[in-house]
Simulated scan of single mutants.
Amino acid sequence: MLQAHSVGLPAPVTLVVAAAGALAAVGLWWRVRSTPDGFVPRRVLASRGFLAAGLIGGTVFAAITGCCSAPRP
């Protein structure tokens, strides 16, 4: 999604990719809810520190990707 404009993906393709990502997120949420002691226990996923670390990591990744893929003047 971050590179959609840079690689020239048309808007309909970008929307399909976004919808697939949203569907995957819902599927993951459902899987975690139905399997509390799966790969990562629910109590770990639900902890404040884990969520904060995930959000910070995603933000840093997005910033690095956006910075490094920006067109040079």
Rank of each mutant, 00 (worst) to 15 (best):
S34T: 13
A53Q: 05
P10C: 02
V60H: 02
G27K: 04
V26Y: 06
V40P: 00
G21E: 04
A53M: 11
S6P: 03
T35E: 14
P12S: 04
T65V: 15
R31Y: 09
P73C: 06
V16H: 03
G27Q: 09
L9N: 04
F50H: 06
V32A: 13
W29V: 11
V16E: 01
A62N: 05
S6H: 12
V32E: 12
F61G: 03
A52Y: 03
F50C: 07
A53D: 11
A22H: 01
L28I: 11
D37N: 12
F39P: 00
L15R: 08
R72V: 14
D37G: 10
D37S: 12
A70K: 03
G54P: 02
F61K: 07
G21D: 11
L51D: 08
R33I: 00
F61V: 11
P41Q: 06
G21Y: 10
R31C: 04
A22I: 14
P36D: 04
L2V: 09
A62R: 00
A24W: 14
L51F: 06
F50A: 13
C68I: 10
A4W: 01
R42V: 11
L51H: 08
R33S: 06
W30V: 13
S47M: 01
G66A: 10
W30S: 09
F50D: 02
R33K: 09
G38R: 02
P73H: 12
Q3M: 14
P41I: 02
G66T: 03
V60Q: 05
L15N: 05
R48V: 08
A19D: 05
V32W: 12
G27R: 07
G49Q: 10
A52K: 03
V26T: 05
P41H: 04
P73E: 02
V13A: 15
L55M: 14
A20D: 03
A46E: 13
I64T: 13
A11M: 14
R72T: 12
R72D: 07
G27L: 14
C68Q: 08
A62M: 04
A11F: 02
H5G: 09
P73W: 13
V17D: 05
T59P: 00
C67A: 15
P73Y: 10
R42C: 02
V40K: 05
A11T: 12
R42S: 09
C68N: 07
L15Y: 15
G57K: 01
G54Q: 10
V26S: 04
A19M: 14
M1P: 12
A24E: 04
L28F: 12
P10W: 00
F61L: 15
S47V: 03
L45T: 01
F39I: 12
V32N: 09
A46V: 04
V17Y: 14
W30H: 10
T59C: 11
A24N: 07
L55N: 08
R42D: 06
T65E: 12
L51Q: 13
V16G: 02
I56G: 05
P12V: 01
R43N: 04
V26K: 08
G49T: 12
C67T: 15
R48S: 10
G27D: 04
